[in-house]
C-alpha cells in the first residue's frame, strides 16, 4: 500500500498480476462477465474460423487484473478514474506485470489526489495495456 506521507512524483510501483495465464481463468472471466465471444474460449472456432493461433484473453480481464494492482496500491474505494487502451493481445501462458508511476500529486486539506500512468507488460516487455488512473486517498 502506498505511503501518502512519503510518496513523490516519479515513484513507480509494480506487481505481477498473473503468472502463466490459463485458459481456465479466461473461461472463468467469460462466465462471470457475460462476454462469451468464442474468440476467448473456443479453440476450434478461433483457429479454424477466425484465423488466430489460439484463444486470447478478454481485454477487460487484463484491465480487471490491472485494477487489482491499483486497489492493492491505493486501497479500496479510492479510485476516481481508471482508463486504458488495449495495445496488444494477451495469450494463454502469458505472465503480466503492471507498473504504476506517480505523475502528479495534489494535496488538499483532508486528502490527496494522485495521478498515475499505467502500463501492463507481458513476459517479453510488450505493453498489453497502457492507461491512467486517479485516486483520492
Amino acid at each position: 500500500m502506498i505511503d501518502v506521507n512519503n510518496m513523490k512524483v516519479g515513484d513507480t510501483f509494480e506487481e505481477v498480476i498473473v503468472d502463466n495465464l490459463t485458459r481456465t481463468q479466461i473461461v472463468q472471466y467469460a462466465g462471470v462477465s457475460g462476454d462469451y465471444n468464442p474468440l476467448h474460449t473456443d479453440e476450434i472456432f478461433t483457429t479454424q474460423v477466425a484465423g488466430y493461433p489460439t484463444v486470447f484473453a478478454h481485454g477487460m480481464l487484463t484491465m480487471g487484473m490491472t485494477g487489482k494492482m491499483l486497489t492493492n496500491l491505493v486501497g479500496d474505494d479510492k479510485l476516481k478514474n481508471f482508463g486504458v487502451r488495449f495495445t496488444s493481445q494477451v495469450w494463454p501462458g502469458d505472465t503480466l506485470k503492471t507498473k504504476a508511476k506517480i505523475i502528479s500529486i495534489e494535496k488538499n486539506t483532508d486528502n490527496v489526489l494522485v495521478n498515475f500512468e499505467l502500463v501492463t507488460e507481458n513476459q517479453n516487455n510488450i505493453p498489453v495495456v497502457t492507461g491512467t488512473a486517479t485516486a483520492l486517498i
Binding site: V32, G34, T41, G67, T71, F82
Partner: peptide, 29 residues
C-alpha cells in the same frame, strides 16, 4: 465491487450479442 465489475452488466443486457440465445444458432463451434 471491484473497479471493472460493471463490465458484467452484459449479463443483464437482453440483447447481448456475445451470449448464446436459447434456440438460436451460435457462431462458436
Amino acid at each position: 465491487a471491484p473497479p471493472t465489475f460493471i463490465q458484467s452488466a452484459a449479463q443483464f443486457n437482453p440483447d447481448n450479442p456475445l451470449r448464446p440465445k436459447i434456440g438460436e444458432p451460435w457462431f462458436g463451434s
